[in-house]
Simulated assay, not measured.
Amino acid sequence: MRIAVGSGNPVKRDATARVFDAAAVEAVVVDSGVSEQPFGRAETRHGAVTRARRAFAEAAAADLAVGIEGGVAAVDSADCGPLEPIGDDLSLVMWAAVTDGDRLSCGGGPTLPLPDRIAARLRAGEELGPVMDDVLGTDDVAKKQGAAGAFTAGTLTRTDALEAAVAAAAGPFLSDHY
Rank of each mutant, 00 (worst) to 15 (best):
M132S: 13
E163W: 02
D63P: 00
D160P: 01
D63I: 05
N9A: 06
G108T: 12
G137D: 05
S7L: 11
G47P: 11
G137P: 05
D116C: 05
V25C: 06
G81V: 04
L112C: 09
G108W: 01
V135D: 13
A165M: 09
L83P: 00
V49L: 14
D14V: 00
P10C: 11
M132F: 09
P115F: 12
L83H: 07
T111N: 01
S7M: 10
R2H: 12
G109P: 09
F20A: 08
A52F: 07
A61F: 08
S91N: 13
L112A: 07
A170L: 08
L112G: 08
E26G: 05
H46W: 04
I86D: 13
S175K: 12
G33V: 12
E43W: 06
T152Y: 01
R117I: 07
A97F: 02
R2A: 07
V66D: 03
Y178S: 14
R2Y: 03
R51D: 03
H46A: 15
G108Y: 01
G81L: 09
V25T: 01
T152H: 04
G40T: 12
P82A: 15
A119K: 08
Y178F: 10
G87R: 06
E26Y: 00
D160T: 03
R53V: 13
I86W: 13
V166I: 02
T155M: 09
A78I: 08
D176S: 15
P115G: 12
A169M: 11
A57W: 00
A22Y: 01
G70R: 03
E127C: 11
A59G: 02
H46E: 15
V5K: 03
R2L: 15
G6H: 07
A42W: 02
G125P: 08
M94N: 15
R13N: 04
D134H: 13
P110W: 00
A24P: 00
L90M: 15
T155E: 03
G6D: 04
G137C: 09
D89R: 08
